[in-house]
């Protein structure tokens, strides 16, 4: 019974609708914490019907809207741009809004927990203040000397290309909260702060690269990175985070020698 209501109807969609079996039953195993109820966090299972082409975020919505309104998590854009909904899904840091059910083996319970290394406030919500403090500490804004030009600050395409990768960051904290050094010591700036410093250090229009390099040369800066590549694996924007850190290290070394 293919109803021509949508012009984009594909054969696969038709088949799914015809057989009436496009939804499957999945289990979400969610790490719950509510300080107003108990001091310990506990796992709670939810069963729900989902289309495998839906996302983990859709599942969380379904639970919150239809089963348990107390489930607490952050999301805004729901399209991978605002960086609100980084969480640990089946042990890996991802954005719930970019993770399709079919890509994470819906046969087994799907575990969902808050990102690590930051204080859990409730369920999947963590305190992001230390993360943004590190971001602020690398001065993530254009700094120039002299008079303001009367027209826009021009830059060649090659100069723009130099730091293109690190402009894509949405500050979701997936990288920083996947880093074992950060888990153990929150004084470490963490990958995200270094990525955002990189974005200005290698920008030909910026004039405070020296200052930012000096900040990251410190004992809690880039030298604490142990090249585990967890950050690169975690980044939902596909930024080569470890490479960016390595480029900052190299800039520091070539500056000295």
């Amino acid at each position: 019974m293919s109803t021509p209501t949508l012009d984009k109807h594909s054969a696969a969609l038709d088949a799914a609708e015809d057989s009436d079996s496009h939804t499957i039953t999945v289990t979400f195993r969610i790490r719950r914490f509510n300080p107003e109820v108990a001091a310990e966090a506990t796992w709670e299972d939810f069963q729900l019907e989902l289309d495998p082409k839906e996302r983990v975020l859709d599942g969380l919505h379904k639970i919150k809207w239809e089963q348990d309104g107390t489930l607490t998590f952050r999301r805004s854009c729901a399209h991978g741009i605002c960086g609100s909904d980084a969480m640990r899904i089946n042990g890996k840091n991802r954005l719930a809004c970019k993770t399709l059910i079919k890509d994470i083996n819906p046969e087994k319970p799907i575990t969902v927990e808050a990102i690590k290394g930051l204080t859990v406030l409730k369920d999947l919500v963590v305190d992001m203040d230390p993360f943004f403090q590190a971001y602020r500490d690398v001065m993530p804004f254009l700094i120039t000397k002299g008079n303001e030009p009367t027209r826009e600050r021009l830059q060649t395409a090659e100069d723009r290309e130099r730091f293109d990768d690190t402009t894509k960051c949405i500050l979701c904290a997936a990288c920083t909260s996947s880093c074992p050094v950060f888990w153990n010591d929150g004084q470490y700036f963490g990958p995200a702060a270094i990525v955002n410093a990189h974005r200005f250090i290698f920008d030909s229009r910026d004039e405070a690269g020296e200052q930012r390099l000096e900040i990251l040369n410190d004992k809690d800066g880039v030298w604490r990175c142990r090249t585990t590549f967890n950050c690169t694996d975690a980044c939902p924007r596909g930024i080569e985070v470890t490479k960016a850190i390595q480029e900052v290290k190299r800039a520091l070394i070539t500056r000295r020698f």
Binding site: E36, A38, G117, T119, V120, D127, D137, I215, N217
Partner: peptide
Amino acid sequence: APVIEAPRKRTGKTPKT
């Protein structure tokens, strides 16, 4: 209940370079 603080977390008072 008290929340579990992250170890040595960064604050505005973290010493500068």
